[in-house]
Simulated scan of single mutants.
Amino acid sequence: MAHWPDDRIQRLFNIKLPIIQAPMAGSSTTEMAIAVALAGGLGSLPSAQMTPAQLTEALLKFRTATTASVNVNFFCHAPAVNDPLVDRQWRKQLEPYYVEFGIDREVQLASANRAPFDDAYYAVVEALRPEVVSFHFGLPSYLLLDRVKSTGAKIISSATTVREAVWLEEHGCDAVIAMGSEAGGHRGNFLTHDMAAQVGTMSLLPQVVDAVKVPVIAAGGIADGRGIVAAFSLGAAAVQIGTAYLFSPEAKVSKIHREALENIWDDGTAVTNVFTGRPARGVLNRLIREIGPLSPLAPAFPFAAGGLAPLRAKAEAAGSGDFTNLWSGQSARLSPRLPSGQLTENLAADALSHFSRLAASTQ
């Protein structure tokens, strides 16, 4: 009977399957996390666009539905100040689009904020005790991190280079996510900002495994059993999967975003900073092609979104995603179209079937 070659993550997080649903801010839902958890994986709740009260509500809903482990994810970037001069320069670059759509360049529309981990979020962790707490963009201050660890939570964070993985282990992570350049959404980089040198999953993963003692979770470009088997073959103890879950009915994905995902090709995404000010992988659209993908004029995270907000609103009202961040990894075309729970089970079964065939071929 096939079995997982490495069960350290299952034992560490008390889960049946070594499959983690990526915490995708704006797209993941509590229903998705619950479905994944009930199927035996690790469901994740992204907090970056939630208030502490909203996160509390989501965790209570999760706890009502299942006693399974849950992962709560936080951003831990250093908050930037919105520089009026930079904002004016950014709007000047966007001016041809404002003229095209008949929009006043000075118009202000609200855009989604991304709040870093702080005392208020810690209070939610202390009260509701999620089994796993994950971070993006490094780790919070050692004082906050120690308080989180005191609740008994296991700590994980994303690394996009070996140096970042070693740093995370040295600063207290119980496991490290090796986030390859194929992954959709915001890059987890924090020691480097050189996007030209970002490493693919299958190169990054074995080097991280060799460099750290803690279990390693593979992320980026994994959407089926073959990818899971490849990750385990290179030393992973689990996989984190994001884009494949965007096709599930539990995902909070707009019609525009879903259509883009359905029609994407392998070369249809790019790492860009033009939507939020931080590099993130998304579907190529008009804005990326014409001024990106990486613009030196984009304001600091998350303020680039402010200048785009009126353009995005105008385009989306006309059914266009030309100015919308359509996050996606590079393996969207491999993604099954299944409900989150069934997807989790099928991914595991597919991987175990491959393991069985490999074992049989060596006998």
Rank of each mutant, 00 (worst) to 15 (best):
C76Q: 11
I34D: 06
R63I: 07
Y98K: 05
K61C: 10
A68M: 05
P79I: 01
T64W: 04
A53H: 11
R63Y: 04
V36R: 00
P84K: 10
S44M: 08
R88Y: 03
T30I: 03
Y97S: 00
R63E: 09
L45R: 01
K61M: 11
I34N: 02
A68S: 14
D87L: 01
N71Y: 03
T66N: 06
L38K: 14
T66H: 04
E31Q: 10
G43Y: 07
P52Y: 09
A53N: 11
A65N: 05
P96V: 08
M50Y: 10
T56S: 11
V99C: 10
V36L: 08
F74W: 14
V70H: 03
A39H: 06
R91P: 05
N73C: 14
L60G: 06
R91M: 07
L38W: 00
L60V: 11
Q54K: 13
S69M: 05
A33E: 03
V70Y: 02
T67C: 02
I34W: 03
A78Q: 13
C76M: 13
L59K: 02
L42M: 10
A68K: 05
E95P: 01
R91N: 04
C76S: 15
P84M: 12
E95L: 10
C76W: 04
Y98W: 13
L94D: 00
S47K: 04
P52D: 09
R91V: 01
F75R: 01
Y97T: 00
T56Y: 05
A48Y: 11
A78C: 06
M32N: 03
S69D: 06
Q54Y: 01
E100G: 09
M50S: 12
A37E: 01
T67A: 14
Y97W: 12
Y97I: 00
K92M: 07
S44F: 05
N71S: 09
P79F: 00
M50K: 14
L60R: 14
G41P: 10
W90P: 02
A48E: 15
R88K: 12
F62I: 06
F74M: 15
D87G: 01
V99I: 15
A58I: 07
V72T: 14
N82E: 15
Y98C: 03
F101K: 09
S69W: 07
N82L: 14
W90F: 05
A48T: 14
Q49A: 11
H77A: 08
P84T: 08
P96E: 08
A48V: 12
V86G: 02
N82C: 15
T51G: 06
V70F: 05
W90L: 02
N73Y: 12
A48M: 11
T66R: 05
A48N: 14
A37C: 03
L60D: 09
A37P: 03
N82W: 04
R88V: 07
N82D: 15
Q89E: 08
G43V: 10
T51Y: 12
A39W: 04
K92L: 06
M32A: 04
A37N: 02
A39Q: 07
P52N: 14
P96Q: 05
L59V: 09
V70M: 07
A68F: 00
